[in-house]
Nucleic acid binder design. Structure first.
Length: 452
RNA sequence: GGCCCGGUGGCAGAGUGGUUAUGCAGCGGUUUGCAAAACCGUGGACAUCGGUUCAAUUCCGGUCCGGGCCUCCA
């Protein structure tokens, strides 16, 4: 079975094959750690988590690198605002970030490099670019000279003329060409800085990804992933730096970009202020509900975040969890060739998760009719999506042994009342449990309960 | 201003040159002490105007509407 991915570079879907037959190398742009992530930031985390799970099932070895940007002007100003040190802000934010990832069932990457730990590599790369004539020094800055790269702009599909024509930004006086971008910039005494051949300073935005991806994955690797808003300028500039520094024909073979999370049709973003943090979202809905809802749209299409979408996701997840209750987690199938063909075909076709989820519905119906094999398939397919992994879905995290014991004792009392046809008492007990958020389901095998 | 993407039933959301997914909600059943869950059935859509074609929601062009990038942004 071929895995097909939409490659931004080619503007079409292409069959994915790793450069090294048995080893997939993938890099995704991670967070800048100045604040909690919002649901828009969560989409690439979830989407590429699914991609990595699929690739791990399909190839013998996958190396997944997702960086942490811990040097940035937003970090500096936020730390100053809050009156804490920069490192304290970063540590706090990284801790929260990992917590949010866990809530979303996003597995850790193999390597999570931090920018500040790779300044040496960045300086070396910049030095090389200057030596090769692709970069120049001006007023303490080092800039990349895009005119030295004839095919600059290929990823985002824009020419230099277009960029100059459409420019809305003020052009820094030290730039030789308006679209030249910063590799290194000077730091004043109160701002973090590192010694360099160009004085004390800090790296520009794009260079960290070029330096770290080369360090951990090599000068050419398989997949570079990120949000659609990174195509230009971030990824375009990464390509320019990396290719010119290494003299390679490409930085990554595949460039994969997820679409935006929107709110009432508009992009969720910090600047518009229409964002919901993951922390806030999981107060109202569990992490898996948010994860699932993000997967109900194909990853390149916009996903409109709303309470209605989350509620529907919850309804469907409940249905799936009921359907898999008879399946044993020890029997999960991990061999792709043994998984439901329609499901895998859908997922392998540029991660068509909506179509894949429709297969899950089919399997759930079959499972509910008593087909154990379908329940097992449902559980196994869902696990490729990182779903249905919670063994206590209906009990909820809040329950302890004592609460569970009391619920079960009440159910027993109710069933005795039912047996003696005292339905008033039975209904009274049910109403009482309902007030505690416990839903009862009477079935042929007895009474089950679910926490709402 | 330059460049780009999209408009599918009440809602979400796939897909296809001809047989029109799937889910949620609705409606009708089966089942149940009641309820829930589950199962069965069911109506309802391809922004608009032209063109190509035996045939277009699907291809091409115009129009309208929405969104995005060009500046930090996932």
């Amino acid at each position: 079975m071929d895995i097909v991915l939409y490659n931004t570079k080619a503007k079409e879907k292409q069959v994915f094959l790793p450069i090294q037959r048995d080893h997939v190398r993938l890099y995704a742009c991670g967070p800048t750690v100045y604040d909690r992530i919002h649901v828009g930031n969560a989409r690439p985390l979830v989407v590429f988590d699914v991609l990595v799970r699929l690739l791990r099932a399909a190839f013998p070895k996958v190396t997944y690198v997702r960086n942490i940007t811990d040097v940035d002007d937003k970090i500096n100003s936020r730390a100053a605002e809050r009156g804490i040190s920069i490192s304290e802000l970063c540590e706090q934010t990284i801790f929260s970030f990992h917590k949010d990832c866990k809530a979303l069932n996003v597995l850790p990457p193999d390597i999570e490099p931090r920018a500040t730990e790779h300044i040496t590599q960045m300086i070396a790369m910049i030095t090389g670019l200057i030596e090769k004539g692709f970069a120049y020094e001006a007023e303490g800055h080092v800039l990349f000279s895009i005119e030295k790269m004839p095919d600059y702009g290929q990823l985002s599909g824009r020419s230099l003329d277009e960029m100059v024509a459409g420019a809305r930004v003020e052009i820094a006086p030290y730039k030789a060409h308006p679209a030249d971008f910063v590799l290194w910039k000077p730091s004043k005494a109160e701002i973090p800085g590192w010694d360099s051949p160009w004085g004390r300073g800090r790296p520009g935005w794009h260079i960290e990804c070029s330096a770290m991806s080369a360090g951990y994955l090599g000068e050419e690797f398989d997949i570079h992933a990120g949000g659609l808003d990174l195509v230009f300028p971030h990824h375009e500039n990464e390509i320019a730096q990396s290719r010119c520094a290494h003299g390679t024909a490409q930085m990554a073979a595949f460039w994969v970009h997820n679409g935006y999370v929107t709110v009432e049709g508009e992009k969720m973003s910090k600047s518009l202020g229409n964002f919901t943090t993951v922390e806030d979202a999981i107060q109202r809905h569990r992490g898996e509900v948010i994860r699932f809802s993000l997967l109900t749209a194909q990853y390149r299409a916009p996903f409109d975040f709303s309470d209605a979408a989350l509620q529907q996701a919850r309804t469907v997840l409940d249905k799936f969890y009921r359907a898999v209750s008879v399946a044993d987690r020890a029997d999960i199938i991990t061999d792709l060739t043994l998984l439901d063909t329609e499901f895998i075909t859908a997922l392998a076709d540029d991660m068509n998760t909506p179509l894949a989820i429709s297969c899950l519905h089919r399997l759930a119906v079959e499972a509910n009719k008593g087909q154990l094999a379908s329940a097992r398939q449902l559980l196994s397919c869902a696990s490729v999506l990182g779903l249905l992994t919670d063994e206590n879905w209906f009990a909820g995290e809040a329950d302890n042994r004592k609460a569970t014991f009391e619920i079960e004792r009440a159910i027993e009392a109710r069933n005795q009342a039912r047996a003696s046809r005292d339905f008033d008492e039975a209904d009274r007990i049910r109403d009482q449990l309902a007030e505690q958020g416990i839903k009862l389901l009477d079935g042929p095998d007895g009474t089950r309960w679910e926490r709402l």
